[in-house]
Simulated assay, not measured.
Amino acid sequence: MTSKIAQFTIDSTYLVLGENGDSTPIPVSDRFFADLENKFGDFKGKRLVSHFTFTEDWDTWEMHPAGEEFVCLLWGQVDLILEQDGAENRICLSTPGAYVLIPRGIWHTVKVDRPSSMLFITPGQGTQNQARRQ
């Protein structure tokens, strides 16, 4: 017997991809990240598929030691800023569908040039954040 297939929207339900090929939809709420930790622990071997809309620059830098992060512009325009070899490398994303694979362990942030919508596939284990340096 086949199970019923449900429809979701990336705005209200993110997706956790498991290392064994399983996928788990997770409803977005104000407790989303706490719910992730409760359900998946340290997130080892998992990736989060998420969607965010931005109208302002990020106020933090982030870094993912467990793998590359896929960052795709759906609409708008942003500058993705990567800290590499002691310098900032800016990559302008202005074409819908343009994406970048941010290497493992690279600090990055976003400057919003126009309100934007972005899709992320993030290896969440060990993710680090720090205040954005102005």
Rank of each mutant, 00 (worst) to 15 (best):
T2C: 02
S3P: 10
K4D: 15
K4S: 14
I5F: 07
A6Q: 14
Q7K: 13
T9H: 05
T9V: 06
S12N: 14
S12I: 00
Y14F: 14
L15Y: 08
L15R: 11
N20W: 03
N20M: 05
G21H: 01
D22E: 14
S23L: 03
S23T: 09
S23P: 00
T24W: 09
P25D: 06
P25M: 06
I26V: 13
I26A: 03
P27Y: 00
P27I: 00
V28I: 14
S29P: 12
D30Q: 00
A34L: 11
A34Q: 13
L36A: 04
E37C: 01
E37L: 00
N38Y: 08
N38W: 01
K39T: 04
K39G: 04
G41D: 01
D42K: 12
D42N: 14
D42Y: 08
F43C: 02
F43S: 02
K44H: 12
R47T: 06
L48K: 01
V49Q: 02
S50Q: 05
S50K: 03
T53I: 10
W58P: 08
W61S: 12
E62A: 12
E62H: 14
E62T: 10
H64V: 10
H64T: 09
A66P: 11
G67V: 08
G67N: 06
E68G: 07
E68C: 09
E68R: 14
E69R: 05
F70C: 07
C72K: 05
L74H: 15
W75E: 09
Q77R: 13
D79F: 00
I81K: 02
L82I: 04
L82C: 00
G86W: 13
A87K: 14
E88V: 11
E88R: 04
E88T: 09
R90D: 07
G97P: 11
A98S: 11
A98M: 12
A98V: 07
Y99K: 03
Y99D: 11
L101Y: 12
I102G: 02
G105D: 12
I106G: 12
W107H: 12
V110Q: 01
D113N: 13
P115H: 02
P115C: 10
S116F: 02
L119D: 08
F120I: 00
F120T: 04
G126L: 07
Q128F: 06
Q128Y: 01
A131D: 00
R133K: 13
